[in-house]
């Protein structure tokens, strides 16, 4: 095994989940590879807990185009896509030197773009029970 290039492209969580779904649809007789099945199952379970299950190809394109004017790096945009921040503090964590590079309005603009292009249905029941537990 020889590694030519250890990082030739980045994949979004959405793309990985689509690939893993294909593996998971193969039935166990066709797919006797235990390692592949294990990692595909566990990784897709992890990814299903992230916002990427609500995404589609068109939404991602829309989001990426809308983020162009903010001069974010590729990795920052990818992290925004993968984690779909909903609060300003999340943006400040992802974007390096956010205080200098982005104004408060710009941060709110990014949040609005994310909310507009990738609407995430909020499970109301879950957040209520969370609130109850912490009191």
């Amino acid at each position: 095994m020889e590694v030519v290039k250890d990082n030739c492209a980045y994949l979004s969580n959405y793309e990985v989940l689509q690939l893993l779904k294909e593996v998971n649809t193969l039935d166990s007789k066709q797919n006797r590879q235990v390692n592949l099945r294990t990692v595909a199952y566990e990784a897709s379970k992890y990814l299903e807990g992230t916002p990427c299950i609500h995404q589609s190809k068109e939404q991602i394109q829309k989001l990426m185009q809308a983020l162009v004017p903010y001069n974010l790096t590729k990795i920052e945009k990818l992290q925004i896509l993968n984690s779909c921040p909903t609060t300003p503090v999340e943006i400040q964590l992802i974007v390096e030197d956010a205080e200098e590079r982005l104004t408060e309005e710009q941060v709110n603009g990014i949040l609005k773009i994310i909310a507009d292009s990738i609407p995430i249905p909020r499970p109301t029941g879950e957040s209520e029970s969370d609130g109850g537990a912490s009191n």
């Binding site: 020889e2 590694v3 290039k5 990082n7 030739c8 980045y10 994949l11 979004s12 793309e15 990985v16």
Partner: peptide
């Protein structure tokens, strides 16, 4: 995050 790695193998 996930990345692609280019490799070759016999």
């Amino acid at each position: 995050m996930f990345v692609l790695a280019e490799m070759k193998h016999a």
